[in-house]
Design a protein around this nucleic acid. Structure first.
Length: 255
DNA sequence: ATGGCTTATTGTATAAGA
């Protein structure tokens, strides 16, 4: 079983890339972030014709998350229960006995911004919610754009980024609190190339120079850990014309 | 060097992303 996550930075623009990637990689689950469109504009029909069922939690211009799968989905839920938040950042469903949670964690903008405080509060609410979810669904995967580089090896230039948003200690502590729920960073369960990143700035030829960050992650619960076979970052889509600034992260699970 | 790209918007500049 193959699970993947991809921040597409507008599904309207990136739909051809997504369709090509689905056809080539045939994931069992693809979680999307930053669809940037209302539900009424979401391409359910085109995806269905490509063999994928989809659920979407979207809004105009910003945010928006979706789950694509050729399998059946049940127990669909939107947002974080009990959190007053107009931003569409979470969607979840049970697929093939696994609880799939797709999240677009806030960016935070800068550490002196109100958005940074929103990010930290949001992460606490997500963590509390997942503690409950895990009791009901021991087999759980949290896939998405975390907007956190967990360690210095996930940053192309740790000195330059030190203390900045995406890298700051409170954000890394929030990531560790997710791990303390028994969630494992599946990418780090395996040997990986040095300087592995999932996002590169559009500016300054960031991708060509590999000036990136690893901020897109697939965390898996203890009950799923043993079935993890392989995890990788697929840089292919980042090389296409008009790419998203993020590229897919993929996890292979036994059967 | 505080910019540098890319996206969306009832736009012709601004906000946001990371």
């Amino acid at each position: 079983m193959r699970l993947a996550t991809w921040n597409v930075n507008s599904l309207n623009v990136r739909l051809p890339h997504v369709l090509d990637w689905l056809a080539a990689e045939k994931p069992d689950v693809l979680c999307l972030q930053e669809t940037k469109q209302e539900d009424a504009k979401f391409p359910y029909d085109v995806l269905k014709a490509a063999g994928y069922n989809a659920i979407h939690n979207g809004q105009k211009t910003y945010n928006g998350v979706a789950i694509l799968t050729p399998h059946a989905m049940d127990n669909v839920s939107l947002d974080i229960p009990g959190l007053a938040d107009a931003q569409k950042r979470v969607i979840a469903a049970s697929i093939q006995g696994i609880r799939i949670v797709c999240a677009y964690i806030p960016n935070g903008q800068s550490i002196d911004s109100d958005k940074y405080q929103y990010k930290l509060g949001w992460l606490q609410a997500l963590t509390n919610h997942l503690a409950t979810e895990l009791k009901q669904h021991p087999k759980l995967a949290l896939l998405g754009d975390y907007n956190i580089a967990p360690e210095d090896r996930d940053v192309h230039d740790p000195k330059a980024w030190e203390g900045q948003v995406l890298v700051s200690e409170p954000e890394r502590e929030a990531f560790k609190k997710l791990q303390a729920l028994g969630l494992h960073d599946s990418f780090r369960l395996f040997e990986q190339p040095e300087s592995s990143f999932s996002w590169w700035d559009y500016r300054m030829a960031g991708f060509r120079r590999n000036l990136g960050l690893r901020i897109d992650h697939i965390l898996v619960s203890e009950a799923l850990k043993a079935s993890c076979q392989r995890c990788w970052i697929d840089k292919g889509p980042r090389k296409l014309e008009r790419p998203s600034d993020h590229t897919p992260v993929v996890l292979e699970l036994a059967s």
